[in-house]
């Protein structure tokens, strides 16, 4: 939404004439797309458009899935930039699986009082895939809320980067911001870099962040094995368990099934 940015190629206006229950698919892979959700309207959208801009007007609600199956040979760079008006709500999911490098730039401006965002990422990386997730949540207005949960499963020589920045402006009192990045490394060569960053200029706020990097636990694997379940199946079930709480943040059952089906 910065001035001087070029005009999006395609604009999607979501108003009350759309049925709230149906999933809207926006699949233009290249170029820029703009989604504008009109006041008070709720929508569920799946979009793998590379450069996506979202405007949520007052009281608008959006559940957005960004699925990226990285089976092409080219590296991919995508972005999502969001502008939220008063009392709007966004729940977004970035789900990537694959073996080529990937960069996702997400920025959310909580411009209106009471705006809320839940930003979630699931990455399943294999081969020598590098995945960069950069998030910026800008709390501009008071009583805004952000909640981020990013999880990576790192296989082979995969490398996951997470850089999450939370900015709380002077006017944004009573901000509530939470960020968590968890990583599960399944191979000796897998790598993870995680970097939280908080910049807080208001004095009455709640902000917290956390990061964790782990491997499959020997005692857990042994427990599975004593029940007749081999190490490979045990690892599959533990990975499924690791990503489960992210999937459970998706309210729409069809959307959840689509995201879960990718992994």
């Amino acid at each position: 939404m910065t001035e001087g940015s070029s005009v999006p190629q395609r604009c999607w206006q979501i108003d009350s004439s759309r049925k709230g229950a149906e999933i809207i698919r926006i699949t233009d892979a290249d170029g820029k797309s703009l989604i504008r959700v009109k006041p008070g309207v709720s929508a569920v959208i799946i979009s793998s458009a590379s450069f996506l801009e979202v405007i949520l007007e007052e009281g608008a609600r959006l559940e957005l899935l960004r699925p990226f199956l990285l089976d092409q040979t080219l590296e991919r760079e995508v972005s999502l930039s969001v502008h939220q008006a008063k009392d709007s709500s966004l729940t977004a999911f970035m789900v990537t699986k694959g073996s080529i490098s990937f960069k996702d730039n997400v920025s959310v401006v909580l411009a209106g009082e009471g705006a809320e965002v839940s930003l979630n990422g699931l990455h399943d990386l294999s081969n020598a895939c590098e995945a960069h997730s950069l998030t910026l949540i800008d709390h501009v207005a008071p009583s805004t809320k952000s909640d981020q949960l990013y999880k990576s499963v790192v296989r082979d020589r995969g490398h996951s980067f997470f850089h999450g920045k939370i900015m709380v402006r002077r006017e944004a009192q009573l901000t509530n911001a939470y960020q968590l990045n968890k990583n599960l490394i399944l191979s000796p060569e897998g790598r993870v870099d995680t970097k939280p960053q908080l910049e807080i200029f208001a004095d009455d706020v709640k902000c917290s962040h956390g990061a964790a990097i782990g491997q499959l636990d020997d005692d857990q694997l042994f427990y599975f094995q004593t029940r007749g379940i081999g190490r490979e199946e045990a690892a599959r079930m533990l990975v499924k368990g690791f990503v489960k709480d992210v999937l459970l943040k998706i309210n729409d059952p069809l959307l959840r099934a689509e995201a879960g089906g990718m992994l």
């Binding site: 599975f224 007749g228 079930m237 368990g241 990503v243």
Partner: peptide, 22 residues
């Protein structure tokens, strides 16, 4: 251990292990 379990050996753990998400 999983082969042994499939052949009929079972261990009831003193400290059962937690499996989050499973």
């Amino acid at each position: 251990p999983d082969q042994r379990a499939r052949e009929g050996i079972f261990l009831a753990f003193q400290y059962p292990v937690e499996l989050p998400g499973v």
